[in-house]
């Protein structure tokens, strides 16, 4: 079972929910895909076991072989290679490592070099395995790190919880893709609603069953509730706006650690998710039979 915790809007409580769910289950893999600012480790406090560099290839041009035909520049959709009259400039930070420039080069002047863009860390705390991606400061592309996290995933039979970055762009899609369930965390404000709509759009495009968690319930308005009803999206859990939760969080304590009664609530949440995801699979199997 792979659950992706996403939101659209930042600061709704994705990490708090993802970490609390993992800690409630006792045995789980938590994957921090918010590689631009990973922070799940603050709630898990794992013992780090290993670190792996994430390397990306980029083109290296041998000017002695280059005939300045500009084919590489024409094929690059990202403007990462520029051919001038007597030199070729590369911009590794724009390169998406597709390798097209090296393939198309008629004089075989392009080879690939690798550079580090970030790293993956794996840590353990009791039954929880935390996998964290960390993008180097100044690097623009988060998705290669998320891809690498997923490639490294030891699927075994345990539950995998992905903590997605905010937004609805490539890193979020890479996180949600090929999971079983989109758990969308929102807050009942116009901002929360606006970004929730976008996140629901992404999850639907990816054919994922969707459940909502409303965090900071009590603030804002009824917009998110009306939207959920109108779109037939189940609200699985509401967490009240509560200073005590914020205080615990600011000290690195998850919901279940600060308030043990939440363990039962999160186990109930997990049951609902399983049921809904199971129904979804049955529906998909049913429709493919027809």
């Amino acid at each position: 079972m792979m659950i992706a915790v996403a939101s659209g809007k930042g600061g709704t409580g994705k990490t708090l929910i993802a970490a609390s769910l993992a800690l409630s289950l006792g045995k789980a893999i938590l994957v921090d895909c918010d590689v631009e600012e990973p922070n799940a480790h603050l709630l898990i406090s794992p013992q780090w076991q290993l670190t792996k560099e994430v390397l990306l290839p980029f083109p290296k041009v041998d000017l002695a072989k280059c005939n300045f035909c500009q084919e590489c520049q024409r094929v690059c959709r990202f403007g990462a290679i520029v051919v001038l009259a007597d030199q070729v400039l590369t911009f590794p930070e724009l390169c998406h490592s597709c390798g097209a420039c090296a393939l198309i080069c008629p004089s075989k002047a392009i080879s690939e070099e690798k550079r580090k863009i970030g790293e993956i860390r794996v840590g353990i705390r009791n039954g929880i395995k935390l996998m964290e991606g960390r993008l180097q400061v100044g690097e623009p592309m988060a998705t290669p790190i998320i891809r690498e996290l997923k490639r490294w995933l030891d699927k075994e039979d345990s539950t995998i919880i992905f903590d997605a970055p905010p937004g609805t762009s490539c890193p979020v899609i890479h996180t949600l893709r090929a999971t079983d369930y989109a758990l969308l965390v929102t807050e009942p404000t116009p901002f929360g609603l606006n970004d929730l709509r976008l996140a629901v759009g992404v999850a639907r495009k990816l054919n994922l069953p969707i459940g909502l968690i409303i965090n900071k319930a009590g603030i804002g308005d009824r917009g998110v509730y009306d939207y959920a009803q109108e779109q037939n999206l189940p609200i699985l859990l509401e967490i009240p706006e509560d200073r005590a939760i914020a205080e615990a969080y600011s000290r690195g304590k998850s919901l279940v650690e600060a308030f043990p009664e939440y363990k039962k609530i999160f186990l109930g949440l997990f049951e609902k998710i399983n049921l809904q995801a199971g129904e979804n699979v049955r529906k998909a199997v049913g429709s493919s039979k027809r």
């Binding site: 990202f78 403007g79 990462a80 520029v82 001038l84 911009f91 724009l94 623009p140």
Partner: peptide, 12 residues
């Protein structure tokens, strides 16, 4: 409206 690399293209 280029997403990225506008400066590079313009320079060319």
């Amino acid at each position: 409206n280029a997403a990225q690399g506008a400066g590079i293209q313009a320079a060319q």
